[in-house]
Amino acid sequence: MRCRKCAHPAVIKMPRHNISLCKDCLTEFVHNQVRRAVKTHRMFTTDDRILVAVSGGKDSLTLWAILLKLGYRADALYVDLGIGEYSIQSRQKVQRFTDTVAATYQAKLHVHTVEQEQGAGIRELATLVHRPTCATCGTMKRYQFNRVAVEKDYDVMATGHNLDDEAARLLGNVLHWQTDYLDKQTPALPASLGGFAKKVKPLYRLTEREIAAYAVIHHIDYIVDECPMAKGSKMLAYKHALNRLETESPGTKHTFYLTFLDRQAKQHETSGKIAEQDRQHLRPCTICGQPTSTEVCSYCQMMAKAAVAAQRG
């Protein structure tokens, strides 16, 4: 098989675009998709300081690598959840990437260790507050990323969500008709209020397979094993279903998510609308000052509950 663009040996076939590409042309393809995402949603410019949320997995490390390569000013934050061997290994991968790649661009890594700062790992916290681990983890990560972004004065926060993530989430939201979630499912959420960082997803045009291929080609050493808590998650089930459909009819995921975005954009100026809604509903948390729609934000409620439960012992 030859590359469709330059006739060098192909390394990947991409049925959704009906092409096969060699290493260099795949690299160019991936960079172009990211450029296009950044431009379409006016995510950031080369003047902005970007904070990338890294987990040690393929998406976030690849995102960090691409942003640096394309000339953006990107630092990263890793949240150490204290999930046994998984956290130890993923942290090592992030550290190694920082030392070998990011350091050559003078990019910096911030680390937040949950066990150290909050006094218990994420699984113990989840038990204390009687919530599923992943829900507790989600609240923790969102809170810490936003806190670091605002405290350290980053202009925008970037996450490694890809086309598969977004299509699976859209499927989940549609299956349950979660219409208020649908409104917020965009690749760029504006900074609606002082205290809320702008959030972007520059990989939303790329599939997991394309991103993993980029990582392999560029020797990005990421953690292949999954977080053990992900087992049996709904998202995985949606992804498998979508990949079956994708195999039968290439382009399904792309059409599903990108058509949704087109319609959303036509329906309303989403960014304006969300910013407006947020401004009406949000106020500073009485404990920590981060924006929230309730008096005390969900993170502070969670931590208060954990503290009480820990005291009762």
Partner: peptide
């Protein structure tokens, strides 16, 4: 790529690209 012929002497990894979160 998909049409590559793999031989007995090869050491192959089939890597899942799906992540769960």
């Amino acid at each position: 790529a998909e049409d590559t012929v793999l031989e007995d002497t090869d050491s192959i990894e089939i890597r899942s690209v799906i992540s769960g979160g």
